[in-house]
Design a protein around this nucleic acid. Structure first.
Lengths: 273, 273
DNA sequence: TTGCTCCTCACGTCACGTGAGGTGGC
DNA sequence: TTGCTCCTCACGTCACGTGAGGTGGC
């Protein structure tokens, strides 16, 4: 029999870990001196400890290993658990790969423009978008090269006028979206979230429900709408570097339009595949 | 200004997390109602929160991010931290890859022999070996096909006789090792650990110091020496499956030779590259 | 008055590492 | 008697999730 220090050396498992395994009932010494509490291990226990070490290296938790050793497991069952572990490990491996790729993207963006920390100048975040129930009104335009302000100056009064007439209160910030049309033109939509029970379809203004999006690339734009294209540029530069592409045109969420336009806050969103 | 629930929705960061960031001083609301303790966030704060989210996704800890945001960091510094992160992430990625490979090895070993759970029948552990100071005596043989018992029956009495004569007490279990010789023959060494200050060089018995090995493949053998080759077989099967190769011949550590040979416990070791 | 949102503790997570403070045997 | 080994608490780790129990405003 070996005292804990010797057994720790032979097994390359720390004394603290051996005590921990004793505490949680995973692996106990063959003998404990009742007077001193000293733990004593038999050489033959090394094989049992080694099985635990192996299972741990494969990524099983101590709770799982405890269950495995308590109820003797068949080869088939072990195979099943290993396959489960394999898929979990593959998932974590994939996450690590993506993280690594993102670090590389940030490095390459920064190397291009060493004048400013890119994370400050290019804070693109990928996040899920919740579903939204919107009241919308729209107008077709020829493309993205036109000035949208006159369009919105027609759309928003129409939208809010109709909502006011119906006594419907917006439940969130104003939104602009852009849609492809079958004829190749672009639909400009002015919209605002409305309650679940709000119904309307007055021809010009109707309800549209946006499905939740699991992943969207987003950036916060500060300042007036006239400088929006700079933020769009950053967002698209980032998407190119990250090799991600949008599934549709953008959405603009006007989070803060109080006070001077130089203090406005807008979120630009591209839903990703 | 937004209450915490609204801000949580817009940012896709949980309420609990926002409170946590407030607690640790990483990200505070622009305003807290003194009467109720309600937190209020400004739209413009979304950009700041997004930077934190990005840094977290890149794998930085909250403590690191706190330092980064407290002391405004230059592009160069950020590049340096990103490169450091990259190497850390590569390391973790490598570990995940190895773990994945090990799971695959276990699965393939199990698929070959579904009659028994391989981890029970093949508990090979890779671990570091500590340095050892040994008293050794040796003898050359023609190869591994011979019966070693007569050799050991000459070597061990010689070894322990000499140690007894010098009054040197072993500090660990008996060891056998095998060495290549320049002439192609094999050196069989019988050895035992001795204290740091023990000196001896009597021709037949001398001191040899084994360097610590960072990685060795090991297996516990139960029973008499006559069945050692079965355990060697398992160990070598595992090394083949794991695509690992030893740098030298094996070592045998006789951990328990008390009582009947059927209860003996021996560890077989192959130092890995 | 009833929901809704928000609040502050405070425990739990996972597998030990790391002191603190103390005790038998050579 | 002095080191050495071993012992038992018990806090700390990391970033929150998850109740418990309670409070203002519509």
């Amino acid at each position: 029999m070996f005292a804990i220090g010797t057994f720790s050396q032979f097994s390359a498992v720390s004394i603290r870990t051996l005590r921990h395994y004793d505490d949680i009932g995973l692996f106990r010494p063959v003998h404990v001196d009742p007077a001193t509490g000293y733990r004593f291990y038999a050489a033959a226990q090394l094989a049992e400890l080694n099985r635990i070490v192996i299972l741990k290296e494969l990524g099983f938790t101590l709770a799982e290993i405890t269950r495995m050793t308590e109820s003797e497991i068949s080869g088939e069952q072990m195979l099943g658990m290993l396959r489960l572990r394999q898929s979990q490990a593959e998932q974590r491996h994939g996450e690590e790969s993506r993280r690594l790729a993102m670090v590389a993207v940030r490095i390459s963006l920064l190397e291009r423009t060493t004048d400013m920390p890119d994370i400050h100048s290019n804070p693109v975040v990928v996040k899920p978008l919740p579903a939204m129930r919107l009241a919308v009104t729209s107008e077709g335009v020829d493309g993205f090269d036109v000035d949208f302000s006159p369009v919105f100056q027609r759309l928003f009064p129409r939208l809010f006028g109709e909502l006011g007439r119906l006594g419907i209160n917006p439940t969130g910030p104003t939104v602009a979206l852009y849609d492809e049309r079958p004829d190749g033109r672009v639909d400009v939509l002015a919209a605002v979230p409305v309650p679940e029970d709000a119904e309307l379809d007055s021809g010009d203004v109707s309800i549209r429900v946006l499905a939740p999006a699991p992943r969207a690339a987003t950036i916060i734009h500060h300042g007036p709408m006239t400088t929006l294209k700079e933020s769009y540029g950053q967002l698209m530069t980032w998407m190119q570097a990250a090799e991600l592409s949008p599934t549709s045109y953008s959405r603009e969420i006007y989070l803060d339009m109080n006070g001077d336009p130089s203090t406005w806050v807008t979120e630009l969103q591209f839903v990703l595949a």
